[in-house]
Simulated assay, not measured.
Amino acid sequence: MTIYNNSLSILTFKPQMEELLALFGTKNESNCYQPFHLRAIRHSIKLFTAGCAGILQPVTDMAYAPYPDLVKFGQGENNKANEAFSVWLKCLEADIPLSSIQSERICSLYEDTELTNLNWFNLSREQIAIIVHLFNQNGDYWFGHSGQITEDDAIFYWNNYLDILPLQADFDLRYIVPTSLASELNGHNKLLKGIESIRDFYIKTYCVDSPEINEINVMPQNDFGLIVEFDTQLAQLSENVIIALSGQHKCDVVYTYNTYDNRYGDVIVAQKGRLLKMNDD
């Protein structure tokens, strides 16, 4: 029998149950949780590298202090692709949270740039050199690629990986509290000056170093109740996650966390977006 160190006991109305089951990875026909944030992150990687390589340019004189080379080629032609890139650049400057609405917006801007139709073999040698350098600089986070990224690797990432629908975890905390566009691009604090590393952002926001949870136990109790069990690495979830969960789904949530040795435990109770109780043992 698997013992989990996190438990969510949820009480809600029947209309909310289908959304909650979808949130926790239970298959249903609603498809109300699509990984738009993951698509937006991948598309933003391609937009970022395209800007650095001069493939896309802002239509006005713009700067980006955390990484000036993003706009080093200066102002470009006033066309649909560059206009979309300019809007995306403003989103990056504002470090918008990647909610479903904002993520869909980024995906739409990406489509307007038509980068998906730009094949690697149509790039110049200068553009290729810049993109391969960036892929090597941040490829460990962007692609999970350890070691040197060759040009053959880069061809796959550009022509395929950054345009395909990514797999999603059983449970992703970023659906509850959106992630940061700039930190997702920054990865392990290697790229953007003055921007939080993604690990620092995750710990600050969720209190865990990864928002993806791939092994969960979902137990519907009746038409109004649900118990969800899962593990997190050496840490409990942030109270803000529990409050946001209860508010988004208009439900009552009792969150319980215990260490495996039972030396420490915590209980957080939230009701429809309001914190009712916190209890550290």
Rank of each mutant, 00 (worst) to 15 (best):
Ile3Ala: 11
Tyr4Val: 03
Asn6Tyr: 10
Leu11Ala: 09
Lys14Ser: 12
Pro15Cys: 10
Glu18Tyr: 00
Leu20Cys: 00
Leu21Val: 00
Phe24Gln: 06
Phe24Arg: 03
Leu38Asn: 13
Ser44Arg: 10
Ser44Gln: 06
Leu47Ile: 03
Thr49Lys: 02
Cys52Met: 10
Gly54Lys: 06
Leu56Val: 04
Val59Phe: 12
Val59Lys: 07
Val59Pro: 02
Ala63Pro: 00
Lys72Leu: 08
Gly76His: 10
Asn78Glu: 15
Asn78Arg: 12
Lys80Ile: 15
Asn82Ala: 08
Ser86Lys: 02
Leu89His: 08
Leu98Arg: 06
Leu98Lys: 02
Glu104Tyr: 00
Cys107Ala: 13
Ser108Thr: 14
Glu111Asp: 11
Glu111Ala: 13
Asn122Thr: 12
Glu126Thr: 11
Gln127Ser: 05
Ile128Leu: 12
Ala129Trp: 01
Ile130Ala: 03
Leu134Cys: 03
Asn136Ile: 04
Asp140Asn: 15
His145Trp: 09
Gln148Glu: 14
Glu151Ser: 09
Asp153Tyr: 05
Asp153Thr: 02
Ile155Ala: 05
Ile155Cys: 10
Ile155Glu: 14
Ile155Met: 08
Tyr161Arg: 13
Tyr161Lys: 15
Leu162His: 06
Leu162Ile: 07
Leu167Pro: 03
Leu173Thr: 00
Leu173Asp: 00
Leu173Gly: 04
Tyr175Pro: 02
Leu185His: 08
His188Asp: 15
His188Trp: 15
Lys190Cys: 13
Leu192Val: 01
Lys193Pro: 00
Gly194Met: 00
Glu196Lys: 15
Ile198Asp: 04
Arg199Lys: 14
Phe201Ala: 04
Ile203Thr: 09
Ile203Lys: 12
Lys204Leu: 07
Tyr206Val: 02
Ser210Met: 10
Asn217Ile: 06
Asn222Lys: 01
Ile227Ser: 07
Leu234Ala: 09
Leu234Asn: 14
Glu239Ala: 11
Val241Cys: 12
Val241Pro: 01
Ile243Val: 15
Ser246Cys: 11
Gly247Asp: 01
Lys250Val: 12
Cys251Ser: 12
Val254Glu: 13
Tyr255Ala: 11
Asn258Leu: 15
Thr259Pro: 04
Tyr260Trp: 14
Asp261Cys: 11
Tyr264Lys: 13
Asp266Ala: 13
Gln271Asn: 15
Lys277Ile: 07
Asn279Tyr: 13
Asn279Met: 11
